[in-house]
């Protein structure tokens, strides 16, 4: 749990821009601003929320896949008509590798004004990011292709026999969402300092 020190900024020496919207009604604007000042240092920081949210989505994705695989292989009474093969694992593994590749690239490496050999580093970083994003999107499409080719086109659209197909699609959608949240969350708001007290 973060234990941030309360910010020692008075309202007197740092006048905050008041919003003059339709909801501005004198004292209640002040109440809202004071309430936000009171809770703003207790909320989790951007780093924390982005990291936790991406990890939760990633874990849910992989557990959805494991659930589908275990359920499809452990049901024996009427066995599931489509057996679990290695091709079902490929989109998830590629999504995970793409998540790692994409998130090894920082925003400072993508922008060109690096001091030592700037253009070359930026070009390589852009190439890596492009490779990673296209791998992520490609594995997302591959998951949908596996679901459609193995399940939907053979008339298996509902129930237990199509459950694993939906699991593969859901897994890759969740891992893709996780990697994009991690990437844009890390690199989006770095310019303005989240804690003005430091």
């Amino acid at each position: 749990m973060p234990r941030y020190q309360p910010l020692s900024l008075d309202a007197s020496d740092s006048p905050r821009p008041r919003s003059k919207t339709a909801f501005y009604c004198g004292w209640c604007g002040d109440v809202v601003i004071q309430l936000f000042d009171g809770i703003s240092h207790k909320l989790p920081s951007r780093t924390e929320s982005v990291g936790y949210l991406a990890g939760v989505l990633f874990a849910i994705g992989w557990w959805v896949f494991i659930d589908g695989a275990v359920y499809a292989t452990s049901r024996t009474e009427p066995p599931v008509p489509v057996p679990v093969a290695f091709v079902d694992w490929v989109p998830g593994i590629l999504s995970t590798i793409a998540l790692i590749i994409v998130n090894l690239i920082d925003r400072e490496m993508l922008s060109a004004e690096s001091d030592i050999g700037g253009g070359s580093v930026a070009t390589k970083a852009q190439g890596c990011a492009f490779l990673g994003v296209s791998m992520a999107l490609g594995s997302l499409g591959g998951a949908f292709a596996v679901m459609i080719l193995k399940y939907t086109m053979h008339g298996r659209t509902a129930g237990d026999e199509a459950y694993f197909g939906f699991c593969i699609s859901g897994q890759n959608a969740l891992i893709f969402a996780s990697s994009m949240i991690l990437w844009f969350g890390r690199n989006g708001g770095g310019s303005e300092p989240p804690f003005p007290g430091y």
Binding site: T47, E48, Y52, A54, V56, A59, L182
Partner: peptide, 17 residues
């Protein structure tokens, strides 16, 4: 730090999953 949060929340979700 983000790597730490990522892996920790992965384990927490795994404990339920």
């Amino acid at each position: 730090l983000e790597t730490g949060y990522f892996i920790t929340s992965f384990f927490v979700v795994s404990g339920v999953g």
